[in-house]
Design a protein around this nucleic acid. Structure first.
Lengths: 204, 204
DNA sequence: ATTTGAACTAACAATTTTGTTAGACGATTT
DNA sequence: AAATCGTCTAACAAAATTGTTAGTTCAAAT
């Protein structure tokens, strides 16, 4: 009947556990329990905790990378509109994946041996997008519609504003208390604020 | 001669280890080794790993809190100047404590049992500052010098822009590659950019 | 029908990690 | 000088954690 996908179950459980507790905090026994399998199965399919983890981290890194490309990579819109939509859709992606950034930031930080591989992946993704955006911005600068700005800084501004509230939610929420009675309403406000901040940053 | 401050040595070593690897990644044996003492000493002075960790986390939380107050709490300046200086001095604090935010964000996140205590500490620190700033902003709004804005969102904008680059430095650096050949130069650029972003956000 | 091989279980092994304890040592007090 | 007290060591204990292995089961291939 059900071809019971053990490998998949383990992956799903591992994803949850690793995202929530990080590599060191996650325990293979706990993952196995959550997946409903013997903990020997975990070693059968993935040899080691490290290999299982690598699989998850790689997936998440690629997901995070794609999210930026997908959000800002619509080349057939006017740049300003493209940026607005980009901020919004990047933000929406984060609403769907709220603990992705913290996970990546931490695990990447504690794995300097990966820096080289990552550096290449990241630049490959970012460079094209950046150059394209910069050219379009330069046109608007020429027309006097926006101020001159290094697109890298602009994109970093966006990422800072968009990502940080998710990374630090437990610390922010108390400050906004009643305003952010429910999370989703708070996040809607932030999305709007971020767009406002960026538009004001570039408009003349 | 030297009254050899064992307790202090342990605290210093623990701070390093915990900040670098987090609670789960840190090992008491490694802390003891770094402190140059038997690992039994660690239990002699602090009973458990948990208690030692609590001491560090509490210190760091208070440090982070104070840094915001100290940076933005100069009440005898015009608000705009106060904000500019605040951004700068908060940023400088982060340059001196680059992995403080990641540490706090992670460990707080993985300790929901502390949320209540923290909520109170944080609101106590923030509320006064916020109200004071809001009143001064309202004056400028009345004079038509700045646009109306919820100070909480404004401060969050600042914190996002200031803190995130430190949290995510390993992921950002590859994008800026040559520009950020050296860290400190990159951070100087960011400090200026952040001030620019915020000033444009509020000026009419 | 037999073989083969992937998926699986239960038990165990090895190591790491936290925490304890009995007692030593030296300075200070009485 | 004897007792006391805080500091410390060395050895040990207990638990947790990762990883292995011998052997079972069952379906598909030959």
């Amino acid at each position: 009947m059900k071809p019971k996908d053990t490998e998949g179950e383990i992956l799903r459980a591992a994803e949850q556990e690793f995202m929530l507790k990080g590599f060191d905090g996650a325990k293979t026994a706990s993952i196995a329990r959550a997946a409903g399998v013997t903990h020997a199965m975990l070693h059968y399919y993935f040899r080691t905790k490290e290999q299982l983890f690598d699989r998850i981290l790689t997936d998440k890194l690629s997901l995070m990378g794609r999210s930026v490309l997908v959000s800002f990579g619509t080349p057939d819109l006017p740049v300003l509109e493209r940026l607005k939509r980009g901020i919004g859709s990047h933000f929406d992606f984060l609403v769907e994946n709220p603990d992705l950034p913290r996970f990546i930031v931490n695990e990447v930080f504690s794995r300097p041996e990966r820096y080289e591989v990552m550096r290449e992946n990241i630049s490959r993704i970012a460079d094209g997008l950046m150059q394209q955006l910069q050219r379009e911005m330069d046109v608007l600068v020429g027309r006097g519609e926006v101020v001159a700005i290094d697109v890298r800084h602009l994109l970093l501004d966006i990422v800072c504003l968009n990502v940080f509230p998710f990374v630090a939610y437990p610390l922010i929420e108390p400050v906004f208390g009643p305003v952010a009675a429910d999370r989703s309403q708070f996040f809607e406000m932030r999305k709007a604020e971020n767009i406002e901040v960026i538009m004001r940053r570039i408009k003349k």
